[in-house]
Design a binder for these strands. Sequence first.
DNA 1: ATTACTTTTTGCCAAATGGCAAATGATTCC
DNA 2: GGAATCATTTGCCATTTGGCAAAAAGTAAT
Lengths: 189, 189
Amino acid sequence: MEELLLYILKFGNLNQHQVELITSKATELTLRKDEYYLEAGKIARQFGFVLDGIARVCYYNNKGEEITKYFIEENNILVDLTSFDNETPSTSYVQAVTDCRLIVFSKQDWQELLQTIVGWDTIVHKITSKALLQKIERISPLVAEDATSRYLKFLEIYPTVVNRIPLSYVASYLGITQSSLSRIRKNIR
Amino acid sequence: MEELLLYILKFGNLNQHQVELITSKATELTLRKDEYYLEAGKIARQFGFVLDGIARVCYYNNKGEEITKYFIEENNILVDLTSFDNETPSTSYVQAVTDCRLIVFSKQDWQELLQTIVGWDTIVHKITSKALLQKIERISPLVAEDATSRYLKFLEIYPTVVNRIPLSYVASYLGITQSSLSRIRKNIR
DNA sequence: ATTACTTTTTGCCAAATGGCAAATGATTCC
DNA sequence: GGAATCATTTGCCATTTGGCAAAAAGTAAT
């Protein structure tokens, strides 16, 4: 929980009472490796934060290939904002890539916090905007590069991730085959 | 200006007085084809909205190739949020791809609106979040696809754009060469 | 119509990546 | 330790895409 509070307080100040209120709504949740946190077609009912571990957001394209849209590592929020805000079905899966420890807030508690804590909406907005911007900054440099450059950018963008996840997920994130990625890694050293 | 008000009012309600205040701060700006609206290294001083025309956000990668990060067509906001909010130098160029008509607000006027109009901050949050989400939804399906699929997705994602801009910009957006794109288009028909 | 200019297409060949299957390496479980 | 399972690497060849330059098509001005 400490980690979450440190994270939140970077975006705005809260008094002791407000911190306690937030803490009282927080639930810790454990996911085992490969377990799904959210599935396509279901509605995101929780606002999550990763304390420990790596999750990935993925979907299937029209050729049936599994595509990893992005990874979420520790100290990042984990929520399908479109689904959570609008209560519409998610289009993606969220899966634990390693064992994960999360803190989650139910939608009801989350709304109660928004109504109770003055300035909480501003903090939440800053948090979500920053997370969205980070997603853009992580994805867009990949589009226009060749496979080797994409892998090198991946290493920069996700420095804590590469050695903790299967190669196949990296490949499905970069849009190259696992064997090509294996060859690329050989050539880099 | 009508278009901007219609756009804004989709995100929240405003009374006559508030609408007039916003209108009074709006300035119309015209850009000629190829003209830059913002250059890398400069600070974004305006919050913009495209009434007419197409702009693109681009940068140069470490091989010196010009990469188009995204296109902004009419009825979308045009602002480098990171640079505008934090007053930090932009890392991208914003260029008019066709002649453009914009509405722009100076940072000072924008802040005055935020301080004066109750609920304006919430509307702005919704507008910017939606714009960020749209950028993600437009970019991320491209990463993991081959060149032909990327072009087909581009046609879906930017249905109003393709016939109004040079092929070379589409290629620099999709991360393929202009000649490959030309061949791809031949094969599709 | 002619010219000058820009954009798009094409031909040629080289380089990068994909597809598939087998081999190798790692890990887990008994 | 050995068997079973899973992850990664490699070989072989087909396909896609890139690089470069020339040709063709389109646009604008005179």
